[in-house]
Design a protein around this nucleic acid. Structure first.
Lengths: 206, 206
DNA sequence: TAGATTGTTAATCGATTAACAATC
DNA sequence: TAGATTGTTAATCGATTAACAATC
């Protein structure tokens, strides 16, 4: 018995679908169609239907998709019908911003810990958190069973931090440092580097 | 006479190649190979060679690529052999973080303006900038000829801001608001939504 | 019922990889 | 020269789209 392997490019679109559906839900909308979603998101209706059909039959011919139901289904598929604790490493500007960011609430995540190795920052308060010493990071993360971390340290420290996080049992890393990380295949990494995004667009500015 | 159309997925990888090459340059390395880059970046050597060959012949058989030269070439291809001014809209935590971010220097960009519509923020200082009134945004951006903007306002205001930016002549938008924007086809948009990245990884956490 | 929209199949399109001649 | 590595071609692989029967 084998589980069908879902292409990661499909998985990557689900959160975008979900975001749009939750937006509609807030507008008190009841149903939508692949066509409406397609227009909002700038992709084809066929692609949306095909993507969703990988996981089940969520629509009704002639009517479309029940928004509330599809939101519930997608949250379950993405395993965010629970709250994941996140450890943030680096208490600089980026660490500050993510620690105080309200946007994780209701989207499946919660910052639980923030670490730094700078003695002048350790013990200080950021939002509701006290910055803890990176030296204790491995033990704390392991103890707490935290599986997701964000790296917000300089490029020169990011690989070291990643190595430690992997040792601590972290399985997913959101990396803000401008460097490609080397991690074992079972650990997932996503990158946020604003300069990379900007450079990509600059190409088209001619 | 027609210019060969480069796939946008290829363009998207160039900044990552460039980032790795600049890192090597800082390590005082002189040459590298597609194989070494491939190992560092976790992609295939053939893909790197094929991507680069779309823009010219930058390597030498038996030797590889001159790092300094390839950096120069890629910067020219991406049009970042100059400095682009950026307007930041929204002086909240994210706006703060990007306005103070040192990572744009030497990568082709410079924050030039920061706007907000909150009277309690207008006139205040963020890093080296004075927050200006969003009401004056269109005129200031147009006057200054700014082509790149970052949206760091709430989801509910982001589309309005985007419409204004487009009117002001902006051609590239880096959007931190958790919403898909509707813009004319000649305007490029890139999205940074940490929750989307996290949700994508949560799928694999089972 | 008539109209609308799904889920799915087959066709098309595009991207990646393997392999190797060319050549430094 | 011998070894290494490029640039490129052809083959493979995967993703997107068009179209439509099924059906609400």
């Amino acid at each position: 018995m084998e589980t069908k392997q879902i292409p990661s490019i499909v998985v990557g679109r689900l959160p975008v679908y979900l975001r749009a559906l939750e937006y509609m839900k807030r507008e008190h909308r009841q149903v939508t169609s692949s066509q409406e979603l397609a227009e909002r998101l700038g992709i084809s209706a066929a692609q949306i239907r095909k993507d969703l059909s990988q996981f089940g039959e969520f629509g009704k011919q002639g009517t479309g998709y029940d928004i509330e139901n599809l939101v519930t289904q997608l949250r379950a598929i993405l395993h965010i019908n629970r709250v994941w604790d996140i450890a943030v490493v680096g208490a600089g500007d980026v660490g500050h911003a993510v620690a105080r960011y309200q946007g994780f609430t209701d989207r499946g995540f919660r910052v639980a810990q923030i670490f730094d190795n700078d003695p002048s920052k350790i013990g200080s308060q950021i939002g509701e958190f006290i910055v803890r010493d990176s030296a204790d990071m491995l033990e704390i993360i392991h103890q707490a069973g935290i599986k997701i971390a964000m790296i917000a340290v300089t490029a020169s420290h990011a690989q070291d931090v990643a190595d430690q996080l992997v040792k601590a049992g972290v399985k997913a890393i959101l990396n803000y440092a401008p460097i490609t990380l080397n991690v074992p295949p079972e650990v997932h990494v996503q990158y946020i580097d604003p300069s990379v995004h900007l450079q990509r667009m600059a190409y088209y500015l001619g």
